[in-house]
Design a binder for these strands. Structure first.
Lengths: 152, 152
DNA sequence: GAATGTATGTCAGACTACTGACATGAGTCA
DNA sequence: TGACTCATGTCAGTAGTCTGACATACATTC
C-alpha cells in the first residue's frame, strides 16, 4: 500500500542517521570507559559536577539525559565509592548539592581524556566550518523538538 | 586544576550536543509511539522489515542498533502477537528470514505516520541546504568512529 | 577430508534505566 | 492564613537491553 510521503525512508532519514551516529558514539565511549570501570552516565555525572559543582540530583539527571530516579541510584553508588559527597541535610529546602571528592576527580581525569580522544576521532576529517554547521543544525533540531510538545 | 585541553567542555562539545539531540528525538518518538503500544525498537523492526523483507534477526538487530539477543526476544514477542512471521525451518543455513504479516503492516502504518510527524517537527525551520549539510556531517562522524576501532 | 574462522539462533542471568507513587519543602495567589 | 502548584528526594516494581555462553551452519584454508 502506498506508504508514500507519510512514511520514513531509512536511507535518507535524518532521524535514522542521528540515531546511528549517537549509537556509534555511545559504543565508542563505552569501549574506552569500560576499561576504567565506568559507564557513560557515570562519566557524565562526574563531568557535570566538575564543571558545575553543587548541582542537585535532579539537575544532574537533566544534564545526563536520564530520569532523576536513575541518577538517584547512581549517586548512592558513587557516594559509597567515595567519588561524590553530599551533605546529610539540605542547606535549604530538600535540595542536596553534590560535589566531587579528590577520588572522584582522579577517576574523572582519566575518563575525560579518554572521552576527549573519542570526540577528536569523531571529528577527524571535518573542517571547523563543517563542525559549526553541524552544531547549529543539531541545536535547531533540539529546539524544534522541545518547543512543540507532541501535537496531539 | 588545569583540565585544559584534555577535557570536554559541555557547552561547546559536539558529542554532548549529539547526545542531547538523540535524547530529545528518542523522547519525542516514545511520546507518540506509547499510545500505540509500541517501543522505538519495536517500530524500527517493523519499518526495517517493510523496506527490506526477509531480513534475519541479526540483520534486524544491526539495523535497529541493538544486540541480536535483544532483537531475538523482541521477535519472539512479535511472532506471538502475529505482527511478524518466520518459517519454522531455515531455508538455508540457520538464517530465518522474517516478514511482516498484514497485522504487522497495519500496526506499522500508524506508527510510521506518527514518527514521520516527529521528524517533520524536528526539521522545521531548517532549509534543505542545512539538512543536507547536517546529513553529510553525521555521515562523516559515523564513518570516522567506525573506521578506527579505539586507538589504544 | 580435517581444521579453522566467522556468523547465526538461542538460552540464561545481570544490569540499567524507566514508570508509578508518595511525602516534603518552596513559591504563588486568592 | 490556607489552597494550590511545582520541583525535589526517595522507595518499589517493571521492562528493555546487555554480557556471557553454547550449539550449529557455512566458507576458507591447509
Amino acid at each position: 500500500m502506498s506508504q508514500g510521503e507519510s512514511g520514513i525512508h531509512l536511507e535518507t532519514s535524518l532521524g535514522y542517521l542521528l540515531k546511528e551516529a549517537s549509537s556509534a558514539l555511545r559504543t565508542a565511549m563505552e569501549d574506552v570507559l569500560r576499561p576504567l570501570g565506568m559507564t557513560i552516565t557515570h562519566y557524565s555525572c562526574l563531568e557535570l559536577l566538575a564543571q558545575r559543582p553543587g548541582l542537585s540530583s535532579s539537575e544532574l539527571a537533566r544534564g545526563a539525559f536520564v530520569t532523576r530516579q536513575s541518577m538517584h541510584v547512581l549517586l548512592q553508588h558513587l557516594e559509597r565509592e567515595g567519588q561524590v559527597a553530599r551533605p546529610s541535610e539540605a542547606p535549604v529546602g530538600k535540595v542536596l548539592p553534590a560535589r566531587l571528592t579528590p577520588r572522584g576527580r582522579r577517576a574523572l581525569a582519566k575518563a575525560s581524556a579518554a572521552v576527549r580522544s573519542v570526540e577528536v576521532r569523531m571529528l577527524a576529517g571535518m573542517s571547523d566550518a563543517e563542525q559549526a554547521a553541524a552544531f547549529r543544525a543539531l541545536q535547531s533540531m533540539v529546539r524544534s523538538l522541545r518547543d512543540d510538545p507532541a501535537t496531539p
